[in-house]
């Protein structure tokens, strides 16, 4: 507990408790299917954002291909159910391990690339994975995987009629991930990742094995995104490569973290709340204007990148800065 709350002041703890309480009662207040669906998506995207943030935020290696791990997570629960009737309780951790192994194997060569080259390479790999999944018989090709089962309301198979159960279960999982990230953020591992982001030469000069830590970050990042993919599949009970493994999904994962606050603990959650609300509401209100939702979306992203490069989490300190500058201006 101390590791989680140790460095927060009273105000922050209270704010966190209030937000948590709101998250718990939210599905009781909002009874519409639309909002409940939105809440679940926010939780899933928070996990994806936090996962990406380990690699892209803390370690500074921007990956534009995390949709492949998202898809991998979904396929690992979908296909093990289809072929072996395996419970997602086993399939989800299995998928996470698989994603980490996969990240290790491809990370070895591609982590030698830096900056844009790495970003483009991950993008290309994710596209390759999508084509493979579309064309293999084993993965049901473009038809995708349906996990829908008549015996609904099964704890063993994580299928529930009431979407609130999904919500609470996913919320708990998200809080575990959040606690993990929060604890790690004060540990050697994350300090090393931030050093690598800051300067690789300086990192090596204080004894940090840069490639080893990059690989570890990539593995953890992949595993968390795979977890998010598994949960999404478990909730939707149907998925296909065209909806899960596109460049669009990869970029959304990046945006969630970047918009909220790159390299921060809570940033991805804030990003997920804003991006999911924005995309779901613009889609429902402006969807009939065909693409107008994406325009609004794009404009907002540009505004945030221009004025708040540190993400929305830095908004309060920006306002404080601006105010103090204004005050000193008056004093002169």
């Amino acid at each position: 507990m101390k590791a989680i709350f140790g460095d927060m002041n009273k105000k922050q703890v209270i704010l966190l408790v209030v937000l948590l309480a709101f998250a718990v009662i939210a599905p009781q207040i909002f009874t519409s299917l639309f909002v409940r669906n939105l809440l679940i998506l926010i939780v899933i995207w928070s996990i994806l954002g936090m996962g990406w943030n380990v690699m892209g935020g803390y370690c500074g290696q921007v990956s534009n291909g995390h949709s492949m791990y998202y898809g991998l997570g979904a396929y690992s629960v979908g296909l093990t159910l289809q072929y072996f009737k395996l419970s997602p309780w086993i399939a989800i951790p299995f998928g996470m391990c698989l994603a980490a192994c996969f990240a290790w194997v491809i990370g070895k060569p591609i982590l030698r690339l830096k900056g844009h080259a790495f970003a483009i390479c991950t993008m290309a790999l994710a596209e390759c994975m999508r084509y493979i999944c579309v064309n293999l018989k084993f993965t049901n090709g473009a038809k995708g995987v349906s996990m829908f089962n008549k015996s609904l309301n099964s704890v063993l198979y994580l299928q529930f009629k009431d979407s609130r159960i999904y919500y609470y279960l996913f919320l708990v999982i998200m809080l575990i991930v959040l606690a993990l990230i929060k604890v790690l953020s004060k540990r050697k591992f994350f300090y090393y990742l931030r050093t690598i982001r800051g300067n690789e030469d300086a990192a090596a000069s204080v004894g940090i094995d840069v490639s080893k830590y990059k690989i570890r970050a990539y593995m953890l990042s992949a595993a968390l995104v795979s977890l998010g993919g598994s949960l999404y599949a478990q909730y939707m009970l149907y998925f296909d490569p065209a909806s899960m493994m596109t460049l669009n999904v990869s970029m959304m994962i990046v945006l969630v973290a970047v918009m909220g606050g790159i390299g921060t603990v809570l940033g991805p959650i804030l990003g997920a709340v804003i991006i999911e609300c924005l995309s779901e509401y613009t889609r429902s209100f402006l969807g009939k204007f065909g693409g107008l939702d994406m325009v609004l979306y794009g404009v907002l992203v540009i505004i945030i990148v221009l004025f708040l490069p540190g993400g929305l989490l830095t908004l309060p300190s920006k306002i404080r800065d601006w105010r103090s500058r204004k005050n000193t201006g008056v004093a002169k």
Partner: peptide, 27 residues
């Protein structure tokens, strides 16, 4: 380094602790 390679987005304390973590994992 000839041109200081400080970790600009980290505090002075954090800059030094990454050095101190070289021989220990204990914070």
């Amino acid at each position: 380094f000839q041109i200081p390679q400080s970790l600009n987005e980290m505090t002075v304390w954090e800059n030094v602790i990454v050095g101190a973590l070289c021989h220990t994992s204990n914070m």
